[in-house]
Design a protein around this nucleic acid. Sequence first.
DNA 1: GGACGGTGAAACTTCAGGTTGCCTC
DNA 2: GAAGTTTCACCGTCC
Length: 521
Amino acid sequence: MPDVIPIKSLTDNPTFDVVLDTIERNKQIIVFVGSKSSAEKTAEEIAQYIKKNKIAIPHDCKLLSEQILHALSKPTKQCEREAKCVENGIAFHHAGLLQKQKTAIEHAFRQGTIKCICCTPTLAMGINMPAYRTVIRDLKRFTKWGQDYISVLEYHQMAGRAGRPGKDTRGEAITLAKTEAEKETIYEEFITADVEEIYSKLAVEPVLRTYVLSLIATEHVRTKKQIIDFFSKTFWAFQYKDMQKLEAIINKMLGLLEEFAFIESNKGEFTTALDYANESYIATAVGKRVAELYLDPLTAHALIEGMKCAKTFSTFSLLQLMCSQLELRPLLNVRKSEYEDIEQQLILHTEELLTDAPTAYDSDYDEFLKSIKTTLFFETWIQEATEEELLLKFDVRPGELYAKKERLDWLIYAAAELAKLLQSRTVEKELQKLRIRVEQGVKEELFTLLKFEGIGRVRARKLYDNKIKDTGDIKKADMITLTSILGPSLAVSLKKQVGIDVEKISVKENKRKGQISLMDY
DNA sequence: GGACGGTGAAACTTCAGGTTGCCTC
DNA sequence: GAAGTTTCACCGTCC
């Protein structure tokens, strides 16, 4: 057992004490907490303490702080909060941050500029970012069954970040116990405990559905016997040794895939067991595409059925169809205070729905309301709401928006591919448009402008509102206006893109001469 | 007396994250 | 179940 370095108690908060002690030794520390808001709050409080007590931070973090603040064209509250922490050499890190911000913070930590990161378990996974010390503050987390201890495996992941090979000769992983009894529990349950066994997830229906279909679609297997043989060699079979159970699930899956018309079997006049085992399957054209898209067949079926009944549909209908799929979970929570409002929206949009709405007495009603709220969230995004508006209205952080957007994008793409196969041209076209809108967060009217290099949602909107709506308008636009909207370099670039060579101009000079009046930005 | 700010209790919310799946520029 | 956030009542201060 290595010697233990005593830590001075300066505050009434043990986490603070450990962080302050580490900073005093000019070392770095990662504090693991259980939620995003905890990470933010802890970082903020430490930063405030450092500022108030004028604790010297060896590096100047002003530049990094500015960079974090201006990661978006308009900073959100989260950006402001992070920028303030970073100014004092402290940062928070979780999936709600923008990728740009996460990378900047990780880089600054490796460089030694940032001294302390308060984070959710994100940093324990994948990223190579060790520190002299780690503090694992929260060992319990909310699960389906209430508060529960995290796994030993996860504890090791976090504790293992302590110690930088080649730089330090030691590393310290600290866990905080509130009582003596808890100290013992932590020692037994985490420090000396063995890690949990790993279990195969193959027999989970969505996974099995997908694999059975892809095996058939790629013609890797043809007969039922071959399918069963294949699965009998998997880790699942090795672990559970219960092929009968697996066979029953496979049979159920085959039935389902046939019912969805993703596969066809040569069911003939089979009488013997051998005939039964040799029953062969081939994937239909739709089934093959579903497998290629790596969609869960159940989702594919739901999308197809939804699109089939799409005689009249709106953006809302299509978005809601996507939001009802498993792939988009977890959906946004409906708060007590907004319950009625969301129900009202549901009534307003009932005619547009492509899925069957449950009644208020059904058990899945709440989940359905969540899908409505998530649909409204995406609708707000494609109506060009800012990241800050989405954070305020839906409590969705920028990083979460991008993760959700990406999954929706993939689902829309998959749906469009299925629509193509089903020859539903109108739906396909609508989905393709929707995909661009979701990707960019814009109304359709900006499509033309988005094709130009250097023009995204913000600049396209500025141009459009200044009546510059297409190539012709860009050609006609005078350089002063264009420069005032986009800045000199981009104005020149845009003119070039429509085939006009112009010189850079300075708007300020002209403004002073009083030659023009521009819209105020 | 009214506006305003600070404080603390009570009520209300929310609770990690990632992976792959596709195509195109 | 616990921590964080919001809301609201209450109180003191200032103009």
